[in-house]
Design a protein around this nucleic acid. Structure first.
Length: 597
DNA sequence: CTATCGGTTAGAGGT
DNA sequence: ACCTCTCCACCGATAG
């Protein structure tokens, strides 16, 4: 629809029924209207009156002590006690030409890469590119723990984290991961036994019944065992380690903390009884805190064998904790196009303040965990291939605005294929889905991203989901379904998108309140394939009492998981991917993780 | 067109 | 029980 003014060939701008020859005239008229309105509204007088009343009240209170509100902390960095009638006027040392005491800028890069010189040791911490935790070198476990700060590092904290990562975790992997050997796993219980009991078809009545009973039995009642504070700040991402018989939850928070909760260590010896040779200095709650990043830890992913945990951050870096190497290694980082970064993989991928890594996804065509995609706040998608020497395969603009998720299809055929797919190559794994602030979900074939930079990449299918932002678009494990969570309060399911082209239509669309507001992470509904072969998904919820909602593949609400321990909104949820029992995990805005099973 | 503002939202932690 | 802090999540409106 075009207004009359736009369709006129003569340029004219109307406002309040008057027409103006230029846009600027119209704007001026608008401003005059606004000023007149403000002047005639009496607001200015009212404000002056309120200011006076406020000062009066303040003067009155300054003679009597108040009992409400926060007491001004003695070490407050702001002004000293504020209620003196006149404060000394603040003066800028910079404007006065006075240099700061004992500190000066040694060198300054193009984007905030400032090296300080002089000063005390404390003040003189080096500032790294994008304020990252270090210059990109490996972080030992102790480094990563100590970066969390003195508030979280107590006697024995480092030792207990080291014990967990060097001993407990490798033992768990050796004991239970079936991935390296499919045959080994077939000797054990689980999928095979499920098949033999006639549950091979998800449509069979017995399979459905089993699924319903598994979902019905989920509980979150005991706050002592179901909930733990895993990170200091609000949780941006949660994942479970893939080992089938242990629950090890990783949560990433807003400040770049990575918390790992060994859930069933709960109840192990407390700090007092921990002087025990076999389990030196175990913490009572099994939570270990690290800080591999300085910005929001946006996505985490374990590789298939559970030996390497990748994490991406708004600070522009991707790190991997490798069980063999025992360090948090920076495997990719963005840099601006300053010549000094010419030899870096991420050279020229950082465009300054408005530029960060929003999400990460492993490339499921290669099972090494060494190839991955990144999406950025500026609508770009990168592909990084760390096999052999490592290269940035492409960095192309896929969208005009921020891309909240980039996902690569896995295309498992059945749940049992989970045990074998590592050896197969599924053709649909070159299918990518991106979604973000433009409100358009787009599907791409990675193989057809033009290497010629003058040719823009083109999606083969897309849909505009109502204009508002899309929080996430996730493929189900089979690849059959694509699930979107949107700011227009919808959950939508598309099917078989890789066979379509042009505008695609969702098969199901249901209403879901996704208005999390400013202080909670946005909802992102996520899939799971059960051992009964069903695809279900989980999403957080704003409803009271708090709950996590489990839906069937056709968007039927199967269960709202609630209980006494479910006291906060679980903004980011996930399933345990490999456990024989159904286990769901949610992360809250205060760093607490809730486990339902 | 781009930058900025106000509104919205929920939980923890201090007094 | 009440107050304060969170501050790149996003939308819609408005100023420049």
């Amino acid at each position: 629809m075009k207004s009359d003014t736009e369709t006129d060939t003569m340029q004219s701008f109307t406002f309040n029924g008057n027409s103006f020859p230029t846009y600027q005239d119209m704007v001026n008229a608008k401003r005059k209207r606004n000023q007149d309105m403000l002047a005639s509204s009496g607001l200015l007088e009212a404000k002056a009156a309120m200011d006076n009343a406020f000062l009066e009240e303040k003067r009155r209170l300054s003679t009597a002590s108040t009992t409400r509100g926060l007491k001004r902390s003695s070490e407050s960095k702001t002004q000293p006690s504020s209620d003196q009638t006149t404060l000394p006027r603040r003066k800028s040392s910079r404007l006065a030409g006075v240099s700061a005491p004992n500190i000066y800028i040694e060198s300054e890069g193009l984007t905030g890469n400032i090296e300080f010189g002089g000063g005390d040791q404390d003040i003189n911490r080096p500032s790294h590119y994008n304020n990252r935790v270090n210059d990109g070198s490996d972080l030992t476990i102790a480094d990563a723990v100590e970066l969390t700060g003195s508030k979280w590092v107590k006697e024995g904290t480092v030792e207990s984290a080291e014990y967990f990562l060097t001993k407990t975790l490798p033992d768990i992997i050796d004991d239970s991961i079936p991935i390296s050997s499919f045959k080994k796993k077939t000797n054990k219980e689980s999928p095979t036994s499920v098949t033999s009991s006639g549950l091979d078809s998800p449509t069979s009545a017995s399979a459905k019944k089993l699924l319903r009973s598994q979902i019905a039995s989920l509980s979150v009642d005991d706050p002592d065992t179901c909930v733990a504070k895993v990170t200091p700040d609000r949780i941006y991402s949660v994942v479970c380690h893939p080992c089938p018989d242990k629950v090890i939850v990783c949560a990433g928070d807003k400040q770049g903390h990575l918390g790992i909760w060994n859930v069933d260590q709960y109840g192990c010896p407390t700090a007092e009884s921990a002087v025990h040779p076999a389990r030196p200095l175990s913490t009572s709650d099994g939570v270990h805190l690290f800080k591999p990043h300085s910005g929001s830890l946006s996505t985490m992913a374990w590789n298939n064998s559970g030996t390497s945990l990748l994490s991406s951050s708004y600070d522009g870096s991707v790190r991997a904790f490798d069980v063999e190497k025992q360090v948090f290694e920076e495997i990719f980082a963005t840099y601006d196009d300053d010549d000094m970064y010419r030899d870096k993989l991420g050279f020229g991928t950082d465009n300054g303040y408005n530029s960060w890594i929003q999400s990460m996804e492993l490339d499921h065509r290669f099972e090494s965990g060494k190839c991955f995609f990144l999406s950025t706040s500026e609508g770009c998608v990168m592909h990084i291939d760390l096999r052999s020497r490592g290269k940035l395969t492409f960095n192309r603009t896929f969208s005009e605005k921020k891309i909240n998720t980039v996902r690569s299809m896995r295309g498992l055929i059945s749940p049992f294929e989970r045990l074998t797919y590592y050896h197969s190559f599924h053709p649909n794994r070159s299918t990518l889905a991106t979604a973000g602030l433009t409100g358009i979900v787009q599907l791409w074939d990675v193989r057809s991203i033009p290497s010629n930079l003058s040719k823009a990449p083109k999606p083969f299918a897309w849909q505009n989901l109502g204009g508002r932002s899309i929080n996430s678009a996730f493929f189900s494990p089979s690849g059959k379904r694509l699930l979107t969570t949107t700011q227009s309060d919808k959950l939508q399911i598309f099917e078989d998108v890789q066979t379509k082209s042009g505008v695609i239509q969702p098969l199901r669309s249901i209403h879901h309140d996704n208005q999390t507001g400013r202080w909670l992470s946005t909802f992102m509904a996520r899939w799971h394939t059960t051992l009964t072969g069903h695809e279900i998904f989980i999403v957080g919820s704003m409803t009271q009492p708090r709950c996590m909602e489990i839906f069937s593949h056709d968007a039927e609400l199967m269960r709202a998981v609630r209980g006494d321990a479910m006291t906060a909104v679980a903004s980011r949820c996930c399933f345990h991917s490999n456990a024989n029992k159904l286990i769901v995990v949610g992360g809250s805005s205060s760093g607490r993780v809730t486990v339902a099973r």
